[in-house]
């Protein structure tokens, strides 16, 4: 490394870099001592203040009026790019590959519509269940919404059967959000069941889901589990699945990006499908 004074005497090419300086470490040490003085002694603080002052002045002199630089002679070298692999493999794309993926799908909005329609329909068996067993349509509502009303500690059956604004609002939010999301998922998954989509999506999937919940809810929330009538629950789920399935399947299909080569959709290279883009050197 050479100094600025030696610049003119330097032979060869020089590169300008910031000059090394001790002022940052002095300033940092001074600042630390200032803080440390709060729990040590005033003497430590005075030394810290002195170092801080010196550090600030010294640092200013480093950059004002001109920033200090050092000049480093360049050592020219030749970088030889080398790779142990000279051959590049591209992912091969064929039409056979496409056979396993849906080339057409329902638009997202179809799933949303299906979820909303299914969600509306499944309300009725739930309300009917509440009315028949507890003589209150709010029973099922509060069973769902009560999960968000934490101040209900061990509510009685009468509590759950009564009307509660909190329960209604929370139940509505949960029901709307979950039905919409399930609807979207349903719309996305239907093309994967090319045969009997209503049977698979509307009957078998809800039954599997009900079975899964039935098997784990006893561990997750025993109190909730004790109040659920699984037959009615399964009926609601099946109704949801059938209605959502009908709404989705009645919507026209659109071609998806699946029709495009995998390499294009996933941003992986594929020379034969992708015209040159970007800056070319």
């Amino acid at each position: 490394m050479v100094n600025e004074q030696n610049l003119e005497q330097g032979n060869g090419e020089l590169i300008e870099i910031p000059a090394g300086t001790a002022w940052p470490i002095i300033l940092a040490f001074g600042a630390m001592l200032c803080f440390a003085s709060l729990v040590t002694s005033i003497g430590v603080g005075l030394v810290g203040a002195l170092l801080t002052g010196c550090g600030i002045v010294g640092w200013f002199k480093q950059v004002f009026p001109h920033e200090h630089h050092a000049f480093v002679p360049v050592v020219r070298r030749r970088f030889v790019p080398a790779s142990s692999r000279r051959t590049v493999a591209h992912i091969q794309v064929s039409e056979v590959h496409r056979a396993y993926l849906p080339v057409e799908s329902y638009p997202m909005v179809a799933g949303l519509r299906g979820g909303i329609a299914g969600g509306i329909v499944m309300i009725f068996p739930a309300l009917l269940y509440g009315y028949l067993t507890q003589h209150s349509i709010w029973y099922a509502v509060n069973l769902l919404g009560g999960a968000g009303v934490a101040h209900w500690t061990n509510p009685s059956t009468a509590d759950i059967a009564a009307f509660h604004w909190n329960g209604l609002i929370v139940a509505t939010v949960i029901h709307a959000a979950v039905c919409s999301l399930i609807g979207l998922l349903y719309g996305a998954m239907l093309p994967m069941w090319p045969k009997r989509p209503i049977l698979l999506g509307g009957l078998i999937a809800p039954l599997l889901w009900t079975g899964l919940l039935h098997s784990i809810l006893g561990f997750v929330n025993p109190a909730f589990n004790a109040r659920i009538a699984w037959g009615w629950f399964a009926l609601s789920e099946i109704l949801f699945g059938i209605v959502a399935g009908i709404v989705v399947t009645r919507t026209g299909k659109i071609r998806t990006h699946q029709a495009l080569p995998f390499v294009l959709r996933m941003g992986i290279e594929a020379k034969e499908f992708n015209p040159p883009k970007g800056n070319q050197p």
Binding site: K271, G278, N279
Partner: peptide
């Protein structure tokens, strides 16, 4: 200390790949 003798110029996310594989550079994709 100066990192690079000349400021580099890149054309893709993998500039060294482009140098190593000039026949199949990333910027094409």
């Amino acid at each position: 200390v100066y990192n690079f003798e000349e400021p580099p110029e890149v054309h893709s996310r993998r500039p060294l790949w482009d140098l190593k594989h000039p026949d199949d550079p990333d910027w094409e994709y």
